[in-house]
């Protein structure tokens, strides 16, 4: 199980609350909950458990305690044949999970690995404040670690321990 904190490397300069004038650049929540996002929330892509999964992991957003599971089936040629997510959470984390599963199917592990946090935020669409970026990036982070978490007892293949992701931290 992993914990996520992207605060330190993803806080975009535009959101740094330095002055009162910053308020004008804060995104409006009306935009966050745009139709496209709510559609994914209510009608998610591949939500549930994948019985034939070869790889899976779960992760937690320490800010709110939300949990997301990602299970993948990698085909013989290594490609992501199916990507499923499960768990519960806010609109942002659920919709971003749905978008990500949809986007990742058919990709090679290298392509998944190369899919950056910035690209995830772009895929999501609406601009997010740093705290909500954590919600959006939780499924992406779990996907990345799921790729390194084979379900077989095939220890030699398990390089999850070498995955160096962002450090964990707790809400303050």
């Amino acid at each position: 199980m992993i914990s996520v904190d992207f605060h330190h490397f993803l806080v975009s300069i535009a959101f740094l609350p330095a002055m009162a004038s910053v308020s004008s650049s804060m995104p409006s929540e009306q935009d966050i909950y745009e139709e496209h996002v709510l559609d994914h929330y209510e009608d998610p892509y591949n939500r549930g458990e994948l019985a034939s999964a070869t790889h899976a992991d779960e992760g937690k957003n320490p800010l709110c305690g939300d949990v997301v599971q990602v299970s993948l089936r990698l085909a013989g040629d290594g490609k992501v044949e199916e990507a499923f997510f499960d768990g519960h959470g806010c609109v942002i984390s659920q919709a971003s999970a749905s978008m990500l599963m949809e986007e990742m199917e058919g990709k090679t592990p290298e392509e998944v690995k190369d899919f950056t946090a910035e690209q995830m935020l772009e895929l999501f669409g609406p601009q997010l404040t740093p705290n909500r970026q954590k919600c959006c990036l939780l499924p992406w982070r779990v996907l990345q670690s799921a790729l390194h978490s084979p379900l077989e007892e095939d220890e030699a293949d398990d390089d999850a321990a070498h995955f160096s992701g962002p450090s964990l931290s707790e809400e303050n």
């Binding site: 966050i32 909950y33 709110c64 909500r132």
Partner: peptide, 28 residues
């Protein structure tokens, strides 16, 4: 409705509330 979405939506109305476990995970 997830509490984060409640807080976010209230914020649109200018209302600041807290959402989460309020540093009291065992109680939650």
């Amino acid at each position: 409705v997830h509490p984060h979405d409640i807080a976010q939506w209230l914020n649109l109305r200018g209302i600041a509330v807290r959402a989460g476990h309020h540093c009291a995970m065992p109680l939650h």
